[in-house]
Design a binder for these strands. Sequence first.
DNA 1: CATTCGTGGAG
DNA 2: TCTCCAAGAAT
Length: 361
Amino acid sequence: MMRETPQAMDVALLLDWYDRHHRDLPWRVSPPMAQKGAAADPYHVWLSEVMLQQTTVRAVKAYFEKFLSLWPTIEDLAAAETEDVMKAWAGLGYYARARNLKKCAEVVAREHGGRFPESEEGLKLLPGIGDYTAAAVAAIAFNRRSAALDGNVERVISRLYAIETPLPAAKPEMRALALGLTPADRPGDFAQAMMDLGATICTPRRPACSLCPFRGSCRALVTADPETFPRKAAKKPKPLRLGAAFVAIDSSEAVYLQKRPDKGLLGGMTEVPGTDWSARRDGDTSIEAQPFAAPWEPCGTVSHVFTHFELRLSVYRASVGHARGAANGWWEPIGSLKEQALPTVMKKAIAKAIPQAFKAK
DNA sequence: CATTCGTGGAG
DNA sequence: TCTCCAAGAAT
């Protein structure tokens, strides 16, 4: 039977579904333990939520374990060197998250006695914590009623109510509907149940509607094709940008590296010298752009796709007799390159110039 | 509200 | 190969 709108009964069906089909995740206290009163560690919840921003569960798991191993408590993270945090984050992307993670740990450790604020408003004041993460931590770590509106929940809500308004304009409406569904007794489990539902049943393509606990009340299931929700505004095409990267190797097999500015693209990460291709313009791809005089030889191009543009780098390589000094750079032995704060595009460029650079010994 | 922030897997 | 997009935040 079809009901008009989802109500308390449907929320009960969702929680029942979650009790039986929840995912077991390293940072999660699953329903059996949660029902016995076991509380999630706010540090673990926050760390996982920041890592999971626009990032898949699969990619996050190993990083989450590594971070907990390196910094078991938020005080440990607060005391860490930012450079070490950047190195540990390398490869996960959106590097502003790593810098804000460190700042947030410092604020919580030093100004809040090591304890996270329990309210959404208090959480949102912290670096790197926005609408979603504040709501998620409040709900999951502190069992507070809040609307954690992530991509999963947007999809579930948009289908449940067949919302025609495209994103992001529909977000306030979705947030209100999600909050309206949130039960007073298990807000944390409700938030996680909605996300698990979106990740495993109410998927972007080919949703498994026959298995959905909301199948008796989903508007999209009867009025349209659920797969067409949520409605979204058309996105812009990605421009192709060009640039050059210069990989210098000295006689001791060390590569010349330097640190990027803290702000902007790949902020605070490590790079090889190159042209400026991040400032809405192509860089010089010619040998004329060399950072210092050396017998540069072209060794091909590498391509890399960022969120809003595609990059094609012309890679040059040069062997220099002995390491020469440089302003803000240093010579890094090939053997320790993999431990550096090198973003993926830089690893590609170095690997193009030195094929054996990142291979196991 | 629009733009700027990575990366890798799935289809 | 191409498109989508994954527990979004800061400006």
